[in-house]
Structure formats: C-alpha cells, structure tokens
Design a protein around this nucleic acid. Sequence first.
DNA 1: ATAGTATTTAGATATTTGCCTAAATATACA
DNA 2: TGTATATTTAGGCAAATATCTAAATACTAT
Lengths: 87, 87
Amino acid sequence: MNNVFKALNDPTRREILELLRGKDMTVGEIVDKFHISGPSISHHLDLLKQANLVNSKKNGQFIYYSLNTTVVDEIMKWLLQFKSKKK
Amino acid sequence: MNNVFKALNDPTRREILELLRGKDMTVGEIVDKFHISGPSISHHLDLLKQANLVNSKKNGQFIYYSLNTTVVDEIMKWLLQFKSKKK
DNA sequence: ATAGTATTTAGATATTTGCCTAAATATACA
DNA sequence: TGTATATTTAGGCAAATATCTAAATACTAT
C-alpha cells in the first residue's frame, strides 16, 4: 500500500497512468509526451511497476507499458472505510 | 489533488486518519498513539488539513481533529476512470 | 500574576525524491 | 559483424520531506 501511494504522489506518474488509459504505450512514446529525459521517465515507470499500477511486456526492442487496475480496487476499498464511522 | 496524494503518502498520516475514524481526538491523544514528537505530529496534522482530509475545532486549550471525507469521494472518482477503458 | 498544560512555529539535520548526463545493455538490421 | 535505436543503470545534485529540540503562543487555574 505504501508503494501505491508513493507512486501516485507525483503529477507526472499520475499523468502517465491517464495516458495509458487510452492505449498501451512504449517508453519512447511516453517520453515524447513530456519534457523530461528518458531515464527519468524510465524511473517513473519503474515506481509505477513496483506499485503494481502498470505491467510491461517486451516486444522486440520496445517495451510496452499497460495499466494494471487490480490495485485500484484495493485503494478504493481502503478509502471506503472512511465513508463509514467505526463503532 | 496533489495535496491529497501528498498527505496520503505517509504511513503515520494514514494511521492518523484511521484513528480518527473511531472518534475525534486532540493532538495530545494522537501524539500518545505514536513514538513521534508533538511538533512532528502537529506538522502531519497540518498537511492532512491542507489536503482537506481533516477538520480541527478548538475547545478551550484543546484542539479536536476530525475526519473530513468530502475529498475521499474525489479520489475515488479519479480512481474510477481507470476501471473503464478510454475510447 | 504565576505556573502549568496544549499546541504550533522556527530552525537544524538526515533522508528521500526527481531530475539530469553518461555509460551499459538489449535488440534490429544492413 | 558493426551501427543504430530503445531502454535501463549509475552517479551526482538540488529541492522536498520527516524528524528532532527549543522557543513562542494560547488557555486554565491557583
């Protein structure tokens, strides 16, 4: 859970997730969407992966990143506890 | 939104939120639940307040902190976008 | 008024984070 | 094999963060 909130605590990483909502993308395609170096984007993707928010799949010399929404459910579940008072 | 994820990106602050789910608490009561100095807890509470995740109300020399769940809905709404593919 | 309790503000320090460039690795292709 | 492209790893630096102690502020009560 720690990794998840850490991953979400950055505007660039959140924007990457939103991009991936449209379609799977290679690192290079993602890099082109930002004014940030490749290595930095690579690092962001690594953190997103550690949080299980994205998957990656190698295809030739490209690596495609895609959304992994299984963790999203967990976050929502965690958040839901606050919508009901604990007795 | 940035403030919210920033506020949630700390185990102590998340634990404070969970504590407040049970009942409103004074700063001192919260401090007693952790092995962290008063000023540090005060700072955490400040960040939670900036994120609109808690409210505070002065009562004599005490300040009571309580949950504010209005932002929780916004986070869930943001998260929900990932559960449906963008066309 | 003085002393005591509750909380915040200020200032210092160690750790973490985000960014960069340069170098390393992996694959493709001529 | 040798060169170009895609991505990651490594190393370094500046800014942000979490923590602490000491001092300031606010209220209570003797």
